[in-house]
Write a protein that binds this DNA or RNA. Structure first.
Lengths: 212, 212
DNA sequence: TGTACATCAGTGAACGCGCGTTCACTGATGTAC
DNA sequence: TGTACATCAGTGAACGCGCGTTCACTGATGTAC
């Protein structure tokens, strides 16, 4: 455990300890989810005394929250990447629909590729208040929740979603996709192979598309 | 913490320690979720030495699994109760639809009333293998998953769901409802009031009904 | 350009805690004769 | 009906562990003069 990341450091000052601790914490979260974000282990990996962390974080919870924000940001980037593959030509309604699908696919891909980070992203302070926090955003400046919201807005603009059904639509789409993510990574759908997984993802996105 | 449940016991033998430990563990899970199922605390509450638990469970994990099964069983009962309120008269397709809705409502009600138990129910060994385990069933003998499955079968029989879409339909319905449950209890929808919650639940169930 | 000094990042040692688990035991039960 | 004894449920004490956090400290930096 503690033999990784040997503490080779020449200077007394670290220089960027705060970021280094978040990075180490993120690595822990990647492997073991939020519970694995252990303050002592993070300092060990960075090669620093355990209490050095208290120069930069009030307590363990503060470190975990920073890691959580970083995970949200990674999720936003994953969604943005998927959005970038959507061709913007053709019927605006079709484009908007394809973009909504891309949000779902990016979300689910991330959950599967990084289940530990995914669980960490939703482990702390999941209030709608910090939805606009830039630390949780991707390159676009939008957090995952705001990305979903903006794509739903596009859907309304393109006439593919009646605007009276727009309010709260985030939560319907999000619920379905989030639930599937849970079943796929922690739940009874873990055992599915790639093909089966892909099929069920497509069906779920169809359902959302049709039911919204 | 340990002053609750004073260890008043007259006999040397407990009589039903195994069940008592599961009950105490369930109480812990109810309050704090799966992580709160602490072997020592369970024995403390029952009024027994910590190691007495090892007469009945191989280790902490085994205790947690027993608590998990009990939680699944409670969930099944909650769903059955909701199903029992559905009137069986009228168009069979409408009845089957109402029963599917009842499954979703029972699921979500349980998640909201017992968030700790709900999280515990899905914390351990969530494989489809133990879906038929009687320890996870309600009065009907069916686990939550099997209850959902049987109602979907009814839907097919009543002609409300094309039978080629029946396979895997569990996972679509389950994903949506499970995801909403998560957002409601742990996630950003925690802050909603009863009315708002009810509204979003209805909309989600509409979406599933329409999109299946 | 040089020096005194305030600042504050990181150190070293220690704390108390509660956990899961193991050991050799003791005491009640129920069965065989 | 009475007694010896095997069974096994629960005890008491202890273990090692790793955690988060606090204390008084040391050493490098950068700024004021």
């Amino acid at each position: 455990m503690s033999t990784f990341f040997p503490p080779k450091r020449s200077t007394y000052r670290h220089g960027d300890l705060k970021h280094a601790l978040v990075a180490a914490g993120t690595e822990l979260a990647r492997t073991g989810g939020p519970d694995a974000v252990v303050l002592r282990e993070a300092t060990r990996r960075v090669g620093v005394a355990p209490n050095a962390a208290y120069r930069h974080f009030a307590d363990r919870k503060a470190l975990l929250e920073a890691v959580c924000s970083a995970a949200q940001s990674s999720l936003a980037v994953a969604i943005e990447q998927e959005l970038a593959t959507v061709r913007a030509a053709g019927d605006p309604a079709d484009v908007a629909r394809a973009r909504l699908r891309a949000v779902g696919i990016g979300y689910l891909r991330f959950a599967q590729k990084e289940p530990g980070l995914f669980r960490t992203a939703f482990s702390a302070s999941p209030d709608l208040e910090n939805v606009g926090d830039p630390a949780r955003a991707g390159a676009s400046g939008l957090s995952p929740f705001l990305l979903l919201g903006s794509v739903l807005d596009e859907l309304v603009e393109a006439g593919a979603l009646p605007k009276e059904r727009r309010p709260g639509a985030e939560f319907l789409a999000w619920s379905s996709v989030h639930g599937l993510a849970m079943l796929l990574i922690d739940g009874p759908l873990r055992a599915l192979n790639n093909k089966q997984t892909h099929a069920i993802i497509e069906r779920l996105l169809d359902m959302v598309d049709q039911g919204l």
